[in-house]
């Protein structure tokens, strides 16, 4: 069953806006995913070192680490990445899926489910 596999998948959400972070975490939680959270790039790398997730959903413009550096570091783990940002300059970044903000939750969850199925 789809839901059963969903419960075992771990998603790391990296977002410096606590309101958005809470909303995304709530939605993923309701879909049956296990969720970890990070508030910036440095924090995210720390989380990655503790437990490698099946998917990362990350904002781009956050304190303490540039978007480019975060994407470069995340690539080292070979984990699918969704970039969630209002800055469309990142929309053609290689090797990641870009979802523009403000995002459509159904769309974000579809993209996440597809990436997890592929992985």
């Amino acid at each position: 069953m789809e839901q059963t596999s969903g419960t075992q998948r771990l998603v790391l959400v990296v977002e410096d806006n606590p309101l958005t972070l809470d909303a995304v975490v709530a939605a993923l939680d309701e879909e049956g995913y296990r969720v970890r959270r990070a508030v910036d790039g440095m924090d995210a790398i720390g989380e990655m070192q503790q437990e490698v997730p099946d998917l990362v959903i990350a904002d781009i413009h956050m304190p303490r680490m540039s978007g480019g550096e975060l994407v470069r570091r995340l690539r080292e783990w070979n984990v699918p990445v969704i970039l969630l940002s209002a800055d469309t300059n990142w929309s053609r970044t290689a090797g990641v899926v870009f979802v523009p903000k403000p995002f459509d939750l159904d769309h974000l969850l579809d993209v996440a489910a597809n990436l997890l199925d592929e992985g």
Binding site: N17, L19, T20, D22, A23, V24, A26, A27, E30, H61, S85, A86, D87, N89, K101, P102, F103, D104, L105, D106
Partner: peptide, 25 residues
């Protein structure tokens, strides 16, 4: 303009996500 777009996006994103969550539920 980039900073402004990012900031306004940051205000809208959580509102939209919560409404979407209510709709999904």
């Amino acid at each position: 303009v980039t900073v402004l777009a990012h900031d306004l996006g940051n205000y809208l994103a959580p509102i939209k996500a919560r409404i979407d969550l209510l709709r999904r539920r």
